[in-house]
């Protein structure tokens, strides 16, 4: 009897161990399935969001064409250019003059030591016109106008103003997003031009403080260093950055659903994503420039 009892106890222990093993295995498998499901769902939703964003961009491009034909919301466009292009001018001027000054001081101090004093002009063109001009302008505008745009549109969503546009037969993309898109692109190109003028002239002013230099000689050397490709790539970079800032900002503004607490979250996202896309597009255009020239 005692033997049978012992055998039964062993059998019970064995069955419990088997059950634990099965449970562990099933559990592990469930976890694996769960992880796979979640990863798949994330990839799927990211892909979906990407295609949605592409569709949104296409819609803005298409509506921009109609906007230029009909010119229906010129008031919004004018205000956007005023806000982005004109009001940002003092900040751009200070930064560009400062940057130009730094480059010329470093160049004048270092380059003659290697017998390459004349290289300061190509360096000025490369840094101010081709590289830092477009990217710094883009960063300033993304931080200034990008956040303003996404915050404004987000608040309009929360207060049902976007619904009011729809109910009055006014397409919010055509009326709100397109003028901002065109306004920011135009302003970016304009500000890039300002950045170049202030940066290059600012460097001349600083140069006159440390050494005597003829203005005509300075401009002549700069013009010699400047090529059409430099101007084109600089304008292309600022136009692309302007498009990125406005599309990303309006996109995240419209992503706000119901609560005002979503507005700052979307504004932060729009700046973060905007910066990344600006850097990537800048790098891409730089590579294209070197392949082209």
């Amino acid at each position: 009897m005692a033997k049978i009892k012992r055998v039964r106890t062993h059998l019970d222990r064995f069955s419990l161990a088997c059950r634990d093993c099965i449970q562990y295995y099933v559990g592990q498998r469930a976890t694996a399935v769960n992880i796979a499901e979640r990863t798949g769902s994330r990839i799927f939703s990211s892909g979906e969001a990407f295609f949605y964003a592409m569709g949104y961009f296409y819609r803005i491009l298409r509506e921009s064409f109609f906007f230029l034909l009909h010119k229906k919301s010129r008031r919004v466009l004018t205000f956007q250019i005023l806000f982005t292009g004109v009001e940002a001018l003092p900040v751009i001027a200070v930064i560009s003059i400062g940057l130009g000054a730094i480059i010329i001081i470093q160049g004048v101090a270092l380059l003659p030591q290697f017998g390459q004093g004349e290289l300061v002009y190509p360096i000025l063109i490369t840094v101010i016109t081709r590289e830092l001009g477009p990217i710094l302008t883009a960063f300033i505008i993304a931080a200034r106008s990008g956040t303003a745009i996404s915050t404004e549109i987000g608040n309009m969503v929360v207060s049902h103003e976007i619904e009011a546009y729809v109910s009055n037969g006014i397409d919010p993309i055509s009326y709100l997003a397109v003028p901002r898109f065109l306004g920011v692109v135009f302003s970016m190109m304009l500000l890039n031009l300002y950045f170049n003028i202030f940066g290059l002239l600012g460097s001349f002013v600083v140069t006159t403080l440390i050494t005597t230099i003829d203005f005509r000689y300075y401009v002549f050397n700069l013009m010699n260093a400047l090529t059409a490709a430099d101007i084109l790539v600089s304008l292309a970079k600022s136009a692309v950055a302007g498009a990125i800032i406005s599309v990303v900002a309006t996109y995240y503004g419209f992503q706000v659903k119901v609560a005002s607490t979503e507005v700052p979250v979307m504004a932060i996202k729009s700046v973060g994503r905007g910066f990344i896309l600006i850097i990537l597009s800048n790098a891409f255009l730089t590579v294209m420039y070197y392949l082209w020239t």
Binding site: A164, V166, N168, G169
Partner: peptide, 22 residues
Amino acid sequence: DRQILKTNLRQGFVFQDAALWQ
């Protein structure tokens, strides 16, 4: 979307919270 907006032209909507453009 364009057709819906055209349809919306034939109708008005009064929002509970007015939804005026601020």
